[in-house]
Simulated scan of single mutants.
Amino acid sequence: MKQKIFKYKLVYYLAVITSLLLFIISAFLVLEIFNDFSLLKTLFIGISLVINSFAFINLVEKYDKAILFLNLSLFLSIMSLGYPLLLGFLNGYYIVGHFTFKFIIVLILSLLIVNLFKVKRYKGVNEIENIGKHED
């Protein structure tokens, strides 16, 4: 029996495609390390590669923590792409027509859609709280 993560299959496919795309982008960013080495950039690329791979694997296998890793992956991508755009906007550049701005909007929309249509699981009573109590 397959476990449901999202209410609709279309949202699941959107999440898998987004996760795969972010994993591929972070995998190609490893090649960027060799152009200009920086310890901070290496650490950032390594963390993003690990989080994106966990997100993709957990989504494909439909584990419980798949949405958590996908949210972390999307948040990390939005922050890394949004910081230079924010600095450009504050310096007076026109960023609305920029490709990166459009990509961030797509990532934010996918983040909202994923979190709106996730399946909420409420485990009834916790077993630890019932230790020592009689239930007849």
Rank of each mutant, 00 (worst) to 15 (best):
V119H: 10
H98F: 08
Y94F: 14
S53P: 04
L72Q: 00
V106K: 12
E127L: 15
L22E: 02
F101A: 08
I128C: 11
L74G: 00
I104R: 06
K2I: 07
G88A: 11
Y94V: 09
K62S: 07
I47C: 08
I5K: 04
A55W: 12
L43R: 06
V11K: 00
V60M: 14
S26E: 10
L21Q: 07
I45M: 07
I104S: 04
G132E: 02
I95G: 04
T100I: 14
I78T: 01
V16Y: 10
G92A: 11
L87G: 03
V60D: 14
F103G: 11
L49A: 08
L116F: 11
G92S: 10
I17P: 06
L68M: 07
I113D: 08
S48M: 13
Q3H: 15
S53Y: 15
N35W: 04
L90G: 04
V30H: 14
N91L: 13
S53G: 14
Q3K: 15
T18R: 05
P84V: 03
G124E: 07
I45R: 13
G92C: 09
E61M: 12
V30L: 14
Y93L: 15
E135A: 15
I5H: 02
F103M: 13
V125L: 03
K102R: 08
M1C: 12
T18I: 04
I78V: 12
H134P: 02
I95S: 07
V50H: 06
I131F: 03
L116P: 02
L107Q: 00
E32N: 13
